[in-house]
Nucleic acid binder design. Structure first.
Lengths: 201, 201
DNA sequence: CCACATCTGTAGTGAACACTACATATCTGG
DNA sequence: CCAGATATGTAGTGTTCACTACAGATGTGG
């Protein structure tokens, strides 16, 4: 039996375009018309490939977190907890003000509050942010075991903290803060991690 | 000439209900039907009193920031910059997990990203957050003048930082973090302000 | 070249949305 | 008690939304 007419668009390229629309307008603010136009396809192709609007979002999130994961691996490869925090927050200051992308972070811009019928979208985004926090926590647990962080420090709290600052920076970026303002925030934020670090001498 | 039929509802009480709906569902997620039901009025009364949906949001924001302003005055009345930050962030940990209100902060939940036709809503919210940051900055400027903060410190950067952490905590609260998790974040965050404080002896 | 399977474009579908026309009700000033 | 003014409830308005029926196009296996 035949295998049917082949798809005429590249799913990953289309996803990149959809990602940008969700990033800029949020899940509810993005319309199917905007998405299909950006993706260069018609609605039936979108629904055949991704199921529905929420399925498209999840696919876009998968792609976003996959790309971000590569970067996060570099972040946690920093030698100390302090350097991990600095690399993460300074990197975020850069990335969230990169003119190549919409400002802020898709995991925040996607949707913090949603109307009836999309209540699980915020949870979906929160789950992705939690993955990032988990990665940080594991790294800080190791830092404590290595004596890099003080015995009195709480790696889970530190990870939550760095994650919270990241989110706050994302909101700032999306509402017009420039790169320098974000760098200042990152710079101050790192000092809290320093305060939990063992004295080097 | 007559003065017309008097309004049958109390505008402030109705605003409190509308505020809660915007808080829980965001600007775009809140529907006129939900708003009117919560306010106990019909659409024509809403439009006669507040103009349109965005006018209602602004009125709700006015009320929110007015109430919040009272609390902020208490926050900046703390004796030192460190205590200001602690009072602010610990207070936020309490307020944003208060079961009497929706979780998080209206100035964040209201809408970070919006669709076409509501693009100025995020700016409106950002402007209100900026007022808070201004109040913090002025307080930190004073703290530096008083020698409470180090000469090398940057009061504006500190204010931005505390504001960013507040926003991050708001997002965490709205996505299910409990009070203890927020307290941990606040506790770590305060240490960055401590690091900018003059040594007390 | 034919049966079948999958994709694509056109052109809609019903539902939900913000908002309002209009008739009626309730007030004040004279 | 009447005239003018404003509020209210009912019942819509047109628009936009996510989503899809359908017919034609384009591929594969036999």
């Amino acid at each position: 039996m035949g295998m049917g007419r082949p798809r005429e668009f590249d799913a990953e390229t289309a996803l990149d375009q959809a990602m940008e629309v969700f990033w800029r307008h949020g899940y509810e603010g993005a319309t199917i018309a905007q998405l299909t136009e950006a993706m260069g396809i018609n609605p039936p192709s979108l629904y055949a490939c991704f199921g529905n609007k929420e399925g498209l979002l999840k696919a876009a999130l998968d792609r976003y977190t996959k790309l971000r994961g590569v970067w996060m691996d570099e972040v946690v490869a920093a030698p100390t907890a302090r350097d991990v925090a600095e690399r993460m927050l300074m990197g975020i200051a850069e990335k969230q003000t990169d003119p190549a992308n919409p400002p802020g972070c898709l995991l925040v811009q996607g949707g913090i509050a949603c109307g009836s019928g999309s209540e699980n979208v915020p949870f979906e985004l929160a789950a992705r942010r939690a993955e990032n926090e988990d990665q940080l926590r594991e790294r800080f647990v190791r830092a404590k075991a290595e004596g890099d962080l003080k015995p009195s420090s709480d790696p889970a709290a530190l990870a939550r903290y760095v994650s919270a600052v990241s989110v706050g920076m994302g909101v700032m970026a999306s509402s017009g803060s420039d790169r320098e303002a974000l760098r200042q925030v990152a710079s101050v934020a790192v000092q809290a991690v320093e305060a939990q670090s063992s004295d080097r001498r």
